[in-house]
Nucleic acid binder design. Structure first.
Lengths: 121, 121
DNA sequence: CAAATATACATTAGATTCTTATGCATCCAA
DNA sequence: TTGGATGCATAAGAATCTAATGTATATTTG
């Protein structure tokens, strides 16, 4: 996977966990590759996760008890599906809320961009 | 300076440069300690910069030519004021815009929170 | 049908950035 | 006079990401 982010990529740091957990909260269960593709499509390629960041994270989250896995055979290949545990679901909710709060705080700090029409989608 | 962030602090990662440059763009010139206090006050303590993160960053940005410094004597103490260079000013603008774009993209991804009234300021 | 691309997992070296702690010094208020 | 605020700085270690590499199967395309 060759990555060319539109963002200077610094911003993604620290939000990866939030993205993954929120996505799983929405979708129920997903496998790694599916997550990368979904994020890419939903953000028009603006956010692209690298495998080197994603897989270790998924393993960490599973070790922490936030995720559960089940393997599924697709032909001769194995897919590893992840789903949220109850704890994981709580985390997903609070991280998403936290990000939202944070982005509000940041936008206020960065000159109240949210009040400038030209910056709204 | 003892720090107790309300955020799990992960989110701040990657946004520090954006914060510092944007603040300098708004204020003209500031010194390190002033930046930490200003951010703390403007965000009601929600974002608190640590010196260990801030000072090395300021030095890096100066080395990169984004900031200029001038020292000022306050009694027997020395204050180090930072201001944006032209390049720094450009960077400030684009990083702020980038963050805004990024937060929009994120909020869309995290379930379109911006559409939920309860999440609006 | 061969080659390229997509799917799907994983690991790792190195870089970057942040936390936490420490250190030095001055100033001011209790 | 002592503690807290002001003001700079560095440094060890942790955490996380990038970029590269590796393995293997499936599918598309020339």
């Amino acid at each position: 996977m060759y990555i060319c982010l539109m963002y200077s990529n610094e911003l993604i740091k620290g939000t990866l966990k939030t993205i993954v957990l929120s996505l799983l909260a929405k979708k129920g269960r997903m496998y790694g590759y599916e997550i990368t593709q979904h994020v890419k499509e939903e953000t028009d390629g603006k956010i692209q996760l690298t495998e080197g960041a994603l897989y270790p994270l998924l393993h960490r989250l599973e070790a922490e008890g936030l995720l559960e896995t089940e393997k599924e055979n697709i032909g001769k290949r194995v897919r590893k599906y992840y789903r949220l545990t109850e704890t994981g679901n709580d985390q997903a909710t609070s991280l998403a809320a936290e990000f939202h709060e944070f982005s509000q705080t940041m936008n206020r700090l960065l000159n109240n961009f949210s009040l400038k029409p030209s910056y709204n989608v």
